[in-house]
């Protein structure tokens, strides 16, 4: 057993070594390749994001333009992070345009570089969030590599959404950039959306509402981010009922009592334990046979308490050889004596 274990361990160690060698080789060749690539790419590299220190985002030329249908457009210029001075009103048929320039400025410097945000959204959040079955309206800003961001919203495109919950909306602009850059949430202020409420007598509207309600029921409650579920604790089952120890011991004696019956009956039947064989060889064989049987019982006891099945079987195989040989001698001795006795009769 020990030798097999040793061999197995050696094989495992060897496999591990091979694996480590192959991995380090692969890593070396990869390094070489990537070094070459970097050398080639260095000239055309974009402004690298990760190597630099902490930086901040700078928004400039921020304009919000509202064009009411059939009217001149009104443009509001905002200075980040100040919100709009007055709430804007949006009506059906209006269009809303938002544009700004984004730069990234290293800390402690005045000038920055133009940067395209990796994530840029405008979010309409109903001011009265209790009365908003549909949640927020999120739209993605368009952007160019030289830092220009814009979005043009046609109010009528969202007519259904706004009709279901007309009123005040808090509008935010969200900007996110990879690397050591503080993201931006820019609250633009309140937009008053002046849409006619959904007409509940219209069949299409009612059907649409029912469809949405069904969908929401399927989706379940909106989750505000992920939460840790309650910890799963192992539940131990209550202990099984056990009788008192004295009762168990007493009943063990009761279950063993048939041994007394057995011995009594054997005496009654006339068992003759003194019927020993004459020759010492046969005596030895009998003794060996009986002790082998006792050895089997002892082996089974050890199997119950400590040994494994394979160990038990291997020890049992050795014991079996001795048992068979001695048993053959002993039983044939008995047979000879039996035949002799019957012949005498």
């Amino acid at each position: 057993m020990a030798r097999i274990r040793l061999l197995r361990a050696c094989a495992l160690l060897f496999a591990l070594l091979c694996f480590i060698v192959s991995v380090t080789e692969a890593a070396k060749s990869k390094d070489a390749k990537s070094v070459k690539k970097v050398k080639k790419a260095k000239k055309a590299a974009e402004p690298s994001v990760d190597v630099e220190g902490p930086r901040t985002l700078k928004l400039s030329d921020f304009t919000v333009t509202v064009r009411h249908s059939g009217e001149e457009a009104t443009t509001h210029t905002l200075a980040y992070p100040k919100p709009l001075a007055k709430p804007l009103t949006v009506r059906p048929g209006d269009s809303l345009r938002l544009a700004f320039q984004l730069d990234v400025v290293p800390e402690g410097k005045a000038e920055g570089k133009a940067l395209r945000a990796h994530q840029a959204f405008i979010v309409f959040r109903p001011a009265n969030s209790n009365a908003s079955p549909d949640g927020e309206l999120v739209q993605v800003l368009e952007s160019t590599p030289n830092g220009k961001h814009r979005i043009e919203l046609i109010a009528n495109r969202f007519a259904k959404y706004f009709s279901r919950q007309p009123g005040d909306f808090n509008v935010d602009v969200l900007l996110g950039v990879f690397g050591n850059v503080q993201p931006v949430r820019y609250p633009l202020g309140t937009f008053h959306v002046d849409f006619p409420p959904a007409d509940l007598t219209d069949r299409t509207v009612v059907e649409d509402l029912a469809k949405r309600a069904k969908q929401r029921a399927l989706e379940g409650p909106a989750d505000d981010g992920f939460m840790a579920l309650p910890e799963i604790e192992h539940q131990f089952r209550p202990d099984d009922k056990m009788p008192p120890v004295t009762f168990s011991l007493g009943f063990s004696a009761v279950v063993l009592s048939p041994w007394f019956v057995l011995v009594t009956l054997w005496k009654l039947a006339g068992a003759n334990p003194a019927n020993l064989p004459s020759s010492p060889v046969a005596l030895l064989a009998h003794g060996t046979f009986l002790s082998c049987l006792a050895g089997f019982l002892g082996l089974f006891y050890l199997y119950w308490t400590q040994l494994r099945l394979l160990q038990t079987i291997s020890y049992g195989a050795i014991l079996a050889v001795v048992t068979v040989l001695s048993g053959r001698v002993a039983l044939s001795d008995i047979a000879h004596r039996r035949v002799k006795a019957t012949k005498k009769e």
């Binding site: 279950v255 009592s257 048939p258 019956v261 057995l262 009956l265 039947a269």
Partner: peptide
């Protein structure tokens, strides 16, 4: 045979008591 019978009675009693 009587010895075997006694043994069988013994087994029977043991089983019943269990």
């Amino acid at each position: 045979l009587q010895l075997v019978d006694a043994y069988m009675v013994f087994l029977l009693l043991t089983g019943i008591l269990q």
